[in-house]
Amino acid sequence: MVRNALLGMIIKRLGRLVVLMFLVTLATTWMLNLVPGSPAVILAGPSATPSVIAAINKKYGFNESVLVQYWHWLSRVFHGDLGRSYQTQQTVTQALSQRVPVSLELTIMAGLIALIIAVPTALYTGYRAGSFADRVVDGVTSSFISIPGFLAGILLAYLLAVKVHVFPAIGWQSLSKNPARNFRTAVLPVVSLSLPLIAIFQRVLRADVIATLQQDYILLARSKGLPTWKILFRHALKPSSFSLLTIAGVAIGGLIGNAVIIEQVYSLPGLGSLLVSSILSKDLVMVQAVIAIIALVYLVLNLLVDIAYTALDPRVAAQ
């Protein structure tokens, strides 16, 4: 019964995901049309004649209504063709295949590292709330939150790359070509991205752990003679992780497109920098595709969060 309810929920949410994807891409087309200045002007260059511009407009359909433009884009997408950059003439698929792995790797690694560090720390500081260790952690996480990501990035690059040459300061090696070197190029950006996440996750979870530890079932677990780590990890973690899960879904999803600054600092070929450059050059096809990818990652992550809820709390599944 619970299984069926979960399956039903997933099917319902997948349906909603498809609808939302249509809405997001349509809205993107519409908003890009609102931006002043025709892409044709930029494409044709400053000295182009009106007839050249008109020809470009006709070729790319820039004069059509938003709905017609959207329809053209959509029908191409369903044929597996995401279009070709107006600027570089590279296919969008090709550009994405270079950029998406970089962003995904950064996002997943930063999210995982943040969770791996934040969860035990939060359990311990929640258990020993008010202790010296708790106050130290509080100070450290405050600084993680208040220092902007790019500053942390520059600092880390200076200390670990320029000063001691442990890691390269800039550049990227793809995972498939050279995993060892990929790791070395990824460390600094991943750490920079994960610092604020660690702080947020630790604070959210610590607060919930403190509340959970007041529950009767924790006292019962203690009265069974279980060691503290078992009480924390087995009895306290699961019921405390609802807020963490919600926040993590949003925060990790945010990294995929919002890592622009870190990508700039370390000169990484990620989605964020692609998005910014495409917007600046009015490369509409590219912008459309990048935003669609970002939205897709976001929605899938949130679906995963909802599935995780039911895994965490049997009562959610029963409702």
Binding site: D216, Y217, L220, A221, S223, K224, G225, L226, L312, R315
Partner: peptide
């Protein structure tokens, strides 16, 4: 839990819900 154990007042809250 082995020599000395306890039963609490409210069975609705003394078992871990998850």
């Amino acid at each position: 839990g082995s020599r000395l154990s306890m039963v609490f007042q409210d069975p609705m809250t003394s078992l871990n819900p998850v």
